[in-house]
Design a protein around this nucleic acid. Structure first.
Lengths: 348, 348
DNA sequence: CGCGAGCGTTTGAACGTTCACAGCCACGGC
DNA sequence: GCCGTGGCTGTGAACGTTCAAACGCTCGCG
């Protein structure tokens, strides 16, 4: 007797509703999918039964019939935290929330290998588990776009695809607008010199954020006093790069950082030298990660909900046979001020 | 002409394989699911065709026939980061990786409301999108276990269910073993007094970790010199609680923290007073979060891959009709030493 | 030599849905 | 009064899979 007794009472099917409402199953289907084709009183009767029996179409049956999974795949890997400054989780959440509105759902799959490979994608496609993918961390020499193109699987990416400038199926954050807003805020708070601590040149995202800082400084007429340095997305190297920049900007100055991790490094160095964030030196980060929130660091928050929604819309369009959009979607982030960039507020 | 031309060449079905291998579809099905029932040469022929045609059973058809989704639901919410110290993402990844081995997949769904409600669960169940759930953050007065029990939906939880001591469908980390290992390490490194900074009493997880610290201190005969304090899982309150404890333990002492966030708070306070982690005061955290890694804080790393695997196994068993296990599964975490608890190593 | 058992294979049915089309009815124009 | 039309509802088929049962073959036994 190892057989399962499937949940006390079997869930209602379209036939149960049809029988209860004294119509055929097709009429029930129409009520759900093409309400306009059904006479008002019939519709009301069917809708009442749907409600009463708590009927919801079986996604498996629908998938089989429609030859589509109604699902979008998302690869999660253990590298996720490093890249994109720790917001991958929030992005995954927003995607999961947004999926309901696009009547699909998110299926995650993982790869434990270091380099993301296409085997996971292939498995998903072959099992017809998903119709499309969201790529969250495209990088240089990424094999995935080409493979997906060849296989004819639609996808949309969070961030531009470096190797393929012609590809427009992306949504991204306007990095320049973000750092620009940070500089505006710092100037308004009265910081006189504004430095920038970025990634080494050559990363599109990093260069974009640097440009926003430079342009804003020029606009405020403080560019000549400003300085920049570069580092990679790790705490210790960042701390080494931070120290001289802090001295160069001096007390009463501020540093706009290319990411929250870098901003944290700056704050650490500052604290070790006995100075107070905000009061002695302004600091802003980028990404709106929990890291920044926890450490009371001002940050440029990415509109992840909008990005998720945009990507899902694009995927819907691709699945409906529409061509790629004219151009990618650039969304404006929000600057969130915290103690690290307020001169008057004591940093707890 | 908005109709989609579905990916150049339709993917192979069981019938295509059957025709190519000159057998019936059921024989192909047997080769895949019950290879022992098929004659060796037939099997070889069929397997060759499966390989050649890149056949993989359609999950939709399988779901419909077997009346099960072959999927496990996981709720992700925006609160995730705060709770469980930021390891939710890593847990999600491990679950996604582990799913393949249990031939199922993970479907995530989100709730944007603050309090986790059961509406998301209900939607998943009604659409037959998932067969079971993993609950990652059960808490006091959690309505979900009772609702799932009533609905007859299996689930397994990461962490014990407070309100239901009889429920054994959980996997958790042996918190006491973790803090105990931390104390062992600190004593071996030569720290003489070991304090504990925990959460307020009454949380099972927190009390467990505190007990491990106390028992290890007793074992090493240093309990009388040890001290404890309590705080909540937020940076600023933690910093306030940390300051007096740091003074009480004194230079050459160490503090075992109930979480990485708390450990970070201790390190921040220490740095602000010009002292060096590890050298002047030992610090250990708990969770193995990226936060600890980035800040070079020793931590007790949770075996998330094992937990994910165990939970998926339990779900498989429940779906196969087996009863709840005798007791929950307690897994041993690993202590990972870093600069914050090495007396000789300079903290960069 | 007949018969049951066992093995490997095939066949029919079913899972729940939607599409294409057929049917029914009422209405209006000729 | 007949037929075409348009609005609404019902019927058969199909999506790809697995289960239950039937089938044909070989073998061993009486």
């Amino acid at each position: 007797m190892t057989k399962v007794t499937k949940g006390a009472n079997r869930r209602a099917t379209i036939n149960d509703v049809a029988r209860a409402a004294q119509v055929s199953r097709q009429t029930v289907s129409n009520v759900v999918n093409r309400p306009d084709r059904v006479a008002p009183d019939t519709r009301a009767r069917v809708e009442a039964e749907i409600e009463r029996l708590a009927y919801r179409p079986s996604s498996a049956a629908k998938s089989l019939r429609e030859q589509r999974a109604g699902a979008v795949g998302l690869e999660l890997n253990t590298l996720g935290h490093g890249r994109r400054g720790d917001i991958i989780y929030s992005f995954t959440v927003e995607l999961s929330i947004g999926a309901r509105g696009h009547d699909c759902h998110i299926v995650t799959f993982g790869s434990d290998s270091d380099r993301p490979s296409i085997t996971g994608y292939e498995a998903m496609v072959r099992a017809r588990l998903v119709d499309a993918f969201v790529l969250a961390d495209t990088h240089h020499d990424d094999p995935r776009p080409a493979w997906l193109d060849k296989a004819g699987i639609p996808y949309a990416t969070f961030g531009r695809v470096w190797d393929a400038p012609d590809f427009t199926g992306w949504a991204d954050v306007d990095g320049a607008a973000g750092t620009s807003a940070a500089v505006d805020h710092l100037v308004a708070e009265g910081y006189s010199r504004v430095g920038f601590l970025g990634w080494p040149e050559g990363s599109a995202t990093g260069d974009d954020r640097r440009r926003g800082w430079r342009e804003a400084c020029e606009r405020h007429g403080i560019y000549r006093e400003s300085l920049q340095a570069s580092t990679i997305q790790e705490l210790h190297p960042a701390e080494e790069a931070a120290a001289p920049l802090i001295e160069a900007v001096g007390t009463g100055g501020a540093i706009v950082c290319v990411s929250d991790v870098i901003a944290l490094a700056v704050q650490q160095v500052l604290l070790q030298s006995g100075r107070r964030p905000g009061i002695d030196l302004g600091i802003t980060g980028f990404d709106g990660s929990p890291l920044a929130e926890m450490n009371d660091i001002s940050s440029v928050e990415q509109p992840l909900d909008q990005i998720a929604d945009e990507l899902l819309s694009q995927i819907s369009d691709r699945l409906a046979g529409q061509p790629l959009p004219e151009q990618g979607t650039l969304l404006t982030p929000t600057f969130v001020p915290r103690a690290s960039s307020r001169r008057g507020v004591e940093h707890a």
